[in-house]
Amino acid sequence: MTENITPEQADLLEILKTRRYFLRSAVEGLTDEQAALTPTVSELCVGGLIKHVSATETEWADFIVRGPIAGGGMEWSEEAVAAYGNQFRMLDGETVDGILAAYDEVAARTDALVLSEDLDKRWPLPEAPWFEKGATRSVRQVFLHVAAETAHHSGHADIIRETIDGKKSMG
């Protein structure tokens, strides 16, 4: 860290760190095979959720640096939809260690952005059915969204983990 870190930057880093901790804890001690299990009625697995959160955090970090992708970045080709779906599962050859190492790289990049970007900078959101037309987001809001997204999927991962072996993140 740096000596010139503001209290707000420290708070953002702390909230991101704690949300990531809870997501990561859902995979702690699992084998690659267990992390790929889909023991609930959903098709989600713990390893896939970490991949998805990592991919989502990467997309938002890119948004912070470059703004929205022309055309919203949405592609609905069969290949694009399949690639998106693969974010939620562990593919052949993927390991817990590899997924966590990639997530650590994404987290380090995001944390560096917390320290280097103007939190008040705003970008227009891409056109998408889930965004209000003409809406913008500040860099600050994006970091808070990443923390919320991570917490959201930590809950999913916690339920899946409890179904696998009874381990709970709390309690």
Results as ranks from 00 to 15, higher is better:
Leu49Val: 11
Thr163Gly: 05
Glu132Cys: 00
Thr136Asn: 07
Arg161Gln: 06
Thr95Arg: 09
His153Glu: 08
Arg161Ile: 04
Ala55Glu: 09
Lys167Pro: 05
Val142Phe: 12
Ala55Met: 08
Ser77Asn: 00
Arg24Gln: 12
Asp118Ile: 05
Gly134Glu: 08
Leu100Phe: 07
Arg109Asn: 12
Val27Phe: 14
Gly166Trp: 03
Leu23Ile: 06
Val27Cys: 15
Leu13Ser: 09
Gly73His: 01
Trp60Cys: 06
Asp104Pro: 10
His153Leu: 02
Glu162Ala: 09
Arg19Val: 13
Val139Thr: 08
Ile164His: 07
Ala80Ile: 13
Val114Lys: 04
Ile164Ser: 05
Ala10Phe: 13
Leu37Val: 02
Gly171Cys: 02
Pro124Phe: 08
Met90Asn: 04
Ile159Glu: 07
Ser54Asp: 06
Asp32Gln: 05
Val142Trp: 04
Gly47Ile: 01
Leu37Arg: 00
Glu132Val: 11
Ala148His: 15
Lys121Phe: 03
Pro68Leu: 07
Ala83Met: 01
Tyr84Asp: 09
Asp92Tyr: 00
Glu14Cys: 04
Phe22Thr: 12
Gly85Asp: 13
Pro39Ile: 05
Gly48Cys: 13
Tyr21Ala: 15
Lys133Pro: 05
Ser25Arg: 11
Val65Phe: 08
Leu91Gly: 06
Ile15Glu: 06
Thr38Pro: 02
Ala148Thr: 11
Thr18Asp: 10
Lys168Trp: 03
Asp111His: 14
Val81Leu: 15
Pro124Asp: 12
Thr58Tyr: 10
Leu115Pro: 00
Ala112Val: 02
Trp123Lys: 08
Thr136Ser: 11
Glu149Cys: 05
Phe131Ile: 09
Leu30Pro: 10
Glu105Ala: 15
Glu43Lys: 13
Glu132His: 03
Ala107Leu: 10
Pro39Leu: 02
Ile99Gly: 07
Ser138Pro: 05
Glu3Ile: 14
Gly93Pro: 08
Leu16Gln: 03
Ile50Arg: 07
Val81Trp: 04
Leu30Phe: 05
